[in-house]
């Protein structure tokens, strides 16, 4: 960004328009490359969604191309750790590469779980490149419906 001198007096609309034009032209000149590095956009910790439902939390994590056996979900205290490695796709040495955006390497993500989660009942599964972790809440914190008998 250029530093533009602050002009106090006189506002020239024609000049302003010209400046806008220059600015836009500069935007086009920028060597715009998509900075996205796939779903591992966030350096080495994959993006995550956590949804709270009545009796459980669901954590979802996009891990495209990651083999199920290369993912390690563990819990220590109330800290859930998703760890794993994404392997580089194989191609021959003489391949002519046109675009390379896929990321490979190891990643890790930790989540502090609320106390209401029962660490013994956590389940995880991988489908279509998405890791889904079910975090059930403890029995005592689940909302309970008590039926009242009216006599």
């Amino acid at each position: 960004m250029n530093l533009i001198r602050w002009k106090t007096p006189g506002f020239d609309p024609a000049q302003e328009l010209e400046r806008i034009q220059q600015e836009i032209n500069r935007l086009f000149d920028l060597d715009y490359t998509d900075r996205s590095m796939g779903l591992f956009d966030r350096a080495t910790s994959p993006a995550i969604d956590v949804v709270e439902e009545e009796d459980h939390f669901t954590a979802m994590c996009d891990l495209p191309g990651v083999d199920q056996k290369d993912v390690d979900v563990s819990i220590a205290g109330n800290v859930l750790t998703i760890k794993g490695e994404k392997k580089m796709s194989t191609r021959s040495e003489k391949a002519k590469v046109f675009r390379k955006e896929e990321w490979a390497g190891s990643f890790q993500r930790t989540l502090s779980l609320p106390r209401s989660v029962d660490p013994d009942k956590i389940q995880a599964e991988m489908t279509d490149g998405v890791l889904r972790i079910q975090l059930p809440k403890r029995e005592e914190v689940k909302p309970r419906q008590i039926s009242v008998n009216v006599s």
Partner: peptide, 24 residues
């Protein structure tokens, strides 16, 4: 969104590998 991925040419084929998590 545009899926990210790799595109390369090898042994008479052009390969596209696109990341689409959550798509069956």
């Amino acid at each position: 969104v545009r899926p990210v991925g790799n595109i390369w040419e090898e042994d008479g084929t052009v390969m596209l590998r696109l990341e689409m998590p959550g798509v069956s």
